[in-house]
Amino acid sequence: MELRHLRYFVTVAELGSISRAAAKLYIAQPPLSAQIRQLEEEVGAALLVRWSRGVRLTPAGSSFLDDARAILARAEQATQRAREFQSGERSTLRVGLVPSATQSLLPGLLRRFVASNLSVQIEAQERVPSARQLQALRNAELDLGFVRPASVVGQSEWVCAIDDPYWVALPHGHALARSTKPIAVKALEHAVFVAFSRYAESDFFDQTASLCEGAGFKPDVRHTATQFMSVLAMVSSGLGVAIVPASCAILAQPGVAMRRLTGIARKSQLVLIANQALREDAWGRSVLQIAEQELRALEVSVRAASVAAR
């Protein structure tokens, strides 16, 4: 299978007609039809069916179209990045963020890059689990990321980290919200929980579940969301409580009370990771300096919120 097969298929699928696709691709219709049949034989599934007005996708074709578009986009990105390296004028930065760091980090990070003299085009990949970011970094699919690793990140990826303690988000009407004092995890034993989706942020989900199990109970998770603001919206609506990082707590919303959790031995951290290529050139080191500055600024806000809550 070659990239041209994918380009031919995507063009036919988008135009819904082999004749119109052939005209756009500047090739004759019979060779194009032959290329599509060759692709279907290699895939082992019918991707298109003919009808009176042209062609339409089969269920297998619809699935294959999404992947084909993604592969072509990645190939284009790879070409562009190779040209950037060749010219010494890198500009594209692929950034991964776990869901619980998107709202607290991305806006400030973007502002810092705008204010800098660096030419940076950011491709933000949000809601990427920590383990997946690490793998993408090692496969050169990401340049840097912000993760909440369940285990120690290798020194080859680690740039810096901040402590990001566990807090709890409570509906304002919740009994535990009446006190401003820190709350023990055990006090949440009979609560209904809202949580970050395990699919979207498996490390944090497992870490918070482990906190509850360490306190002697299994959390009753009835609602999940892939974004922090959605988690808070559910809490505000009274659907349950949520264990969140302190960096999320500083973004408290109306109807939500944030309280520190006590009696926790496990350390919660937000870690900046980067691939080796980014560390090895001047542009990359400048990028990392800006990213670290934003992480440190967030650390200051987290410490101030923790002091104010004592």
Rank of each mutant, 00 (worst) to 15 (best):
F113S: 03
F113R: 02
V114R: 15
A115H: 09
S116E: 04
N117I: 07
N117S: 13
N117H: 13
S119T: 15
Q121M: 12
I122R: 01
I122H: 01
E123R: 13
E123H: 12
A124I: 03
A124L: 03
A124W: 02
Q125R: 15
Q125L: 15
E126R: 11
V128A: 02
P129L: 00
P129K: 01
P129D: 01
S130D: 05
A131G: 10
R132K: 13
Q133Y: 05
Q133D: 04
L134N: 05
L134C: 08
Q135R: 12
Q135Y: 10
A136M: 15
A136F: 11
A136H: 08
L137A: 04
R138I: 08
N139L: 13
A140E: 15
A140R: 15
E141F: 05
D143H: 08
L144H: 01
L144G: 01
G145P: 05
F146W: 10
F146E: 02
S151R: 15
S151C: 08
V153C: 07
G154A: 14
G154V: 06
Q155Y: 14
Q155E: 15
Q155I: 07
S156A: 13
E157I: 01
V159W: 10
V159N: 06
V159L: 12
A161M: 09
I162K: 02
D163Y: 07
D164N: 11
D164P: 02
P165F: 03
Y166V: 05
W167H: 14
W167F: 14
V168K: 04
L170M: 04
L170F: 06
L170K: 01
P171D: 05
P171T: 05
H172G: 08
H172Y: 11
G173I: 08
H174K: 02
L176M: 04
A177K: 03
A177I: 05
A177Q: 04
S179K: 06
P182G: 03
A184C: 08
A184K: 11
A184E: 14
A184W: 10
K186G: 08
A187H: 06
A187L: 06
L188G: 01
E189Y: 09
H190D: 15
A191Q: 13
A191H: 09
F193V: 00
F193Q: 00
V194N: 00
V194A: 02
F196C: 07
F196M: 13
S197Q: 06
R198I: 07
R198M: 09
Y199A: 15
A200L: 04
A200F: 06
D206F: 08
D206W: 07
D206T: 12
D206H: 08
Q207T: 10
T208D: 02
A209L: 08
S210K: 12
C212W: 00
C212D: 00
